[in-house]
Design a protein around this nucleic acid. Sequence first.
RNA 1: GGAGAGGUGCCUGAGUGGUUAAAGGAGCAGUUUGCUAAACUGUCACCGGGUAACUGGUGCAUGGGUUCGAAUCCCAUCCUCUCCGCCA
Length: 426
Amino acid sequence: MLQLSFIRENKELTIKGLKKKLFKNPEQIIEDLLAIDSKRRETQSLLDGTLAKANAISKEVGNLMKAGKKEEAEAIKLETLELKGKSKDLMNSLAEYETKMTELLYQIPNLPHESVPEGRTPEDNEVVFESERAKKLPEMSADALPQWELIKKYDIIDFDLGIKIAGAGFPVYKGKGARLQRALVNFFLDEASKAGYTEMQPPIVVNEASGYGTGQLPDKEGQMYFIQADGLYLIPTAEVPITNLYRDVILKADELPIKNVGFTPCFRREAGSWGAHVRGLNRLHQFDKVEIVQITKAEDSYNTHKIMCDYVASLLEKLELPFRILRLCGGDISFGAALCYDFEVYSAAQKRWLEVSSVSNFETFQTNRLKLRYKDESGKMQLLHTLNGSALALPRILAALLENNQTADGINLPKAIWEYTGFEKI
RNA sequence: GGAGAGGUGCCUGAGUGGUUAAAGGAGCAGUUUGCUAAACUGUCACCGGGUAACUGGUGCAUGGGUUCGAAUCCCAUCCUCUCCGCCA
């Protein structure tokens, strides 16, 4: 969430940013917030004074008791009665103000970076890069099959079996399909290691505090699977556990930047977002993803964002997939991100661009909730910046590989993963 | 799941109702020094007030309670460890 002190000092800037993010009526919420904030601070001062008095009396009582002056002690005990009542009232209203402020702060999204374009829908996103392969898109013959036909033809993924044992959106990968998926995961992890990321295998369930830490809660409550009996959420992305490893942590400057990579299955209820156009691998309730996460000093984060984007691009080049990079507009960018670049690969038979990665800079939005900080050179506590990106999400990569590389006698896999698959063709 | 022990700052760790988050260590900063080391000094976090020096408050797993006063006593919850049971 945004820092209260920032909002206090940059009211107009905040409102302007919220407008870009299409936040409804930002003036109102900021006014409310600041009004409560000033009441809160006033109350805090009153409470502090009252408690200071009470503390002084307690001390005095202690001294008198020690000195054996019981009557005098009893006499001043009475003075505390009024103070007690007063401080209790003040504490209650203080708690009330704090609850209200937190509620409001949780509703406010991150402010967009200045480079984020104005816009409302995905059409307003800005194409900032097209790969060489994207500039001359592959032409498929008229009988080219979309991924959902190819997986049947080669019997590598079975949706009906998944429906039988779990439900729609939980596919079963079979044979070469399973092997290809595992190969891609290993390929992505190895590449990340080479790029200096430390591999992490986190739990794939998290507690409520972690959900709040990275911003899935309370914003996206209904999108996560929830295990009632234990109060745990199935993770929608490895970002959640891996970033939360650093909740309530004060890092040392020489530990930065933190670079972690993790492979996990990801679970998304996708409540309300299923439509007729969503077929096969395009949208699933469970899918595999390799995620890279970085934690940097504030002044480094935008450079890091670029480096992470270049890294993701390098993966797509190695997989020989045509791709483009979009800078998401204010209306399309996610709640917590200040800047987000989406990577889309072209899936030639569907003739569609499929999102396979988002690389985002959250600035201090997550670290403020996480209380993830470091001490700078002058000894001051500073919030760090968090970034993450998919590198990569598996199903749509699979879809594009299948579609783009289909031939009359099989699907030719890119050279980069042969050593991982053990076969060159499906 | 059963029984027991425990949860204090970056770490170790004292503290069973009365100034204080003891004391030691690490790290960092400053002083001293030709350099390094050593020594000395400072240094927990959060919320307020103040231009600032400084200052008030809060925090001993979490939430309540008792008391003039709680790390300390009471209740509930969470977590960790040991043994037993179960188990990949």
